[in-house]
């Protein structure tokens, strides 16, 4: 809808601006959450920055490796931003791995750190949906509902707006759970269980979803796996905390 923003004679890509703002807000929220949860703020912030930077570099290098024939004669093109191209899965994999090992190196506790990272991760997901809504290729299925949005004269589900609302709701859940002083890990697990369940439901309304060869929505499969994973971990945490402690064995 708005692929670019014109400011005077300059033209800026909307998606790029949303990503930059999203990264800034996400890092700010992580810093505040770390303070609130009484974690090592600098180290927690470092986990997020390391994950972000390694993710971007890995995604770019994987893309360059995939299309090496085109870059071998044009090495400056590897860092030239206008020829941007990224392999998302490589970025996710290496970004998460780098953040994990950096956290281990800094001796950060796993669950409280994940709790502090949650608002940042959710904000990043909201920014992705917002960029897709403003300037991306995504669009929803046909609808006659009054809240449907007209895309080139055809009324469609504003599926990215649903995703943004879901992300904000998950942030609300995180905030409530933290406010109630829930045990470490529960804010992260509850927020992502809700977000995964929502994406599992909403992706059915995306008209150009990523599909498997059989026509199943890939995002739904990933979301279901995450939802079940979050629930299993929540169950383990909750039942562990209420089960009676084993009594000391008495010698017979």
């Amino acid at each position: 809808m708005f692929p670019t923003i014109n400011i005077g004679p300059f033209v800026f890509p909307t998606a790029g601006i949303v990503y930059l703002l999203g990264a800034y807000v996400a890092l700010t929220l992580i810093e505040r959450a770390a303070k609130r949860l009484a974690l090592n703020v600098e180290a927690t912030y470092g986990v997020a920055v390391v994950g972000l930077l390694v993710g971007i570099v890995a995604a770019r290098l994987a893309f360059v490796a995939e299309y090496w024939a085109s870059f071998s004669q044009n090495l400056i093109g590897i860092i030239w931003p206008l020829t941007s191209g990224y392999t998302v899965w490589a970025g996710l994999f290496f970004g998460v791995a780098a953040a994990f090992f950096y956290g281990r190196y800094k001796n950060l506790p796993l669950w409280p750190t994940l709790d502090a990272l949650t608002p940042g991760l959710l904000t990043a997901l909201i920014a992705l949906s917002l960029a897709d809504f403003l300037a991306g290729p995504g669009y929803g299925t046909l609808t006659s509902m009054p809240w449907g949005m007209s895309v080139f004269g055809i009324r469609r589900h504003p599926v990215q707006v649903y995703e943004i609302v879901l992300g904000v709701a998950a942030l609300g859940v995180w905030w409530l759970v933290v406010k109630r002083g829930a045990p470490a890990g529960q804010p992260f697990l509850l927020a992502f269980a809700l977000y995964s369940a929502g994406r599992l439901f909403l992706d059915a309304y995306r008209d150009n979803a990523l599909l498997t060869a059989d026509g199943y929505h890939i995002v739904q499969i990933v979301a279901l796996a995450l939802l079940v994973g979050c629930l299993v971990l929540l169950a383990r945490q909750t039942t562990r905390s209420v089960e009676p402690k084993p009594t000391e064995s008495t010698p017979v």
């Binding site: 369940a197 599992l200 439901f201 992706d203 059915a204 979803a209 599909l211 060869a213 059989d214 026509g215 199943y216 929505h217 739904q220 499969i221 979301a223 279901l224 939802l227 079940v228």
Partner: peptide
């Protein structure tokens, strides 16, 4: 319920 929803949402290829 998740699996059922995925099957319901499956698109014809």
């Amino acid at each position: 319920m998740g699996v059922a929803w995925i099957v319901v949402s499956k698109e014809e290829v």
